[in-house]
Amino acid sequence: MELKEITCIVCPLGCRIQVEMEGGEIKSVKGYSCSRGLEYAKNEVTMPKRTITTSVRAIGGHLPLLSVRTKEPVPKEKIQEIMLELAKVEVKAPVKIGDVVVKNILGTGVDIIATRNLYVK
């Protein structure tokens, strides 16, 4: 039996969750206070995921950068690879908030979307 201690990051409460594991299987989860926390804890011990928020180069916009994020959380181990991929991306103004900037980034099934409006300068 293996016990994993997790601090939940879903909301600012920061619940301390204990997950009991046996042979890669989850035996019990304790200490969470909502269903999102339970889900987070289960993912965290099997496949931890994060939302990446960053920016990409923008051409002709009111800002030199466009802020973007992964539409859903992606596997934590992919963060660096995705950042390197996004370093190559350039967008042209105008862009609307929510527009897809990169579809299905690195085959994760997750899109990169714009998190602000970018106006033509």
């Binding site: 601090t7 939940c8 990051i9 909301c11 600012p12 920061g14 994060r50 934590k76």
Partner: peptide, 12 residues
């Protein structure tokens, strides 16, 4: 800072 930020910004 918030606990969640220590986890996802530093520990990660």
């Amino acid at each position: 800072g918030l606990t969640r930020n220590i986890v996802q910004c530093l520990e990660d």
